[in-house]
């Protein structure tokens, strides 16, 4: 399955192919870069990952399910973060939407809008930063998923936004 993961202001494409029973060797490609992962389901909601011999344990929780995917909370390797996950079917749907019309840019995490990088009406390229969001004292650029015109920016510097809140639309 192909997933698009938005985490910490960046979007990554992760393709995973699991073993039949969920556990054991998985094929993983992170932004096209293949890697082998050994996965063990520790208990409901926790997984053990062995990546090139390094051992990591992650706990996850589903914070929200919505039309465009799900918001997961991940805690592991001494840190935690929330991640927006779009799955393959919804991704293809979104791709169709993107080809034909608007793409919504949502807040990958709760935080404060520090500055806008593009004005409404501006032409932007896929991957170009639209605004800077500060969370946990870290500044993250929120980027456009597609090329097009920035239709509207719905927030202003100083605004506090919640995870998943609509920030801007690109057509």
């Amino acid at each position: 399955m192909k997933y698009q993961i938005q985490l910490g202001g960046a979007t990554r494409n992760v393709e995973v192919a699991g073993a039949k029973n969920g556990a054991g060797g998985w094929q993983v490609a992170l932004d096209g870069k293949p890697m082998a992962a050994d996965v063990a389901l520790v208990e409901g909601g926790r997984i053990s990952l062995l990546l090139a011999g390094r051992s990591y344990t992650f706990a996850w929780a589903t914070l929200e399910k919505n039309a465009s995917g799900a918001t997961l909370w991940l805690a592991g390797a001494g840190r935690e973060a929330s991640a927006e996950v779009l799955d393959a079917r919804r991704l293809t749907f979104q791709e169709r939407v993107e080809q034909s019309g608007r793409a919504k840019i949502k807040a990958p995490m709760a935080g404060k809008v520090v500055k806008l990088l593009a004005e409404a009406g501006a032409r932007i390229e896929a991957g170009q930063g639209v605004l800077v969001l500060e969370a946990m004292k870290m500044q993250n650029e929120v980027r456009s998923p597609k090329s097009g015109a920035l239709l509207a920016c719905l927030v202003a510097p100083g605004d506090t936004v919640a995870t998943g809140q609509l920030l801007a639309e690109v057509e």
Partner: peptide, 8 residues
């Protein structure tokens, strides 16, 4: 790493 974990 977290993105890989999220996908799995």
């Amino acid at each position: 790493l977290a993105s890989v974990a999220a996908a799995i």
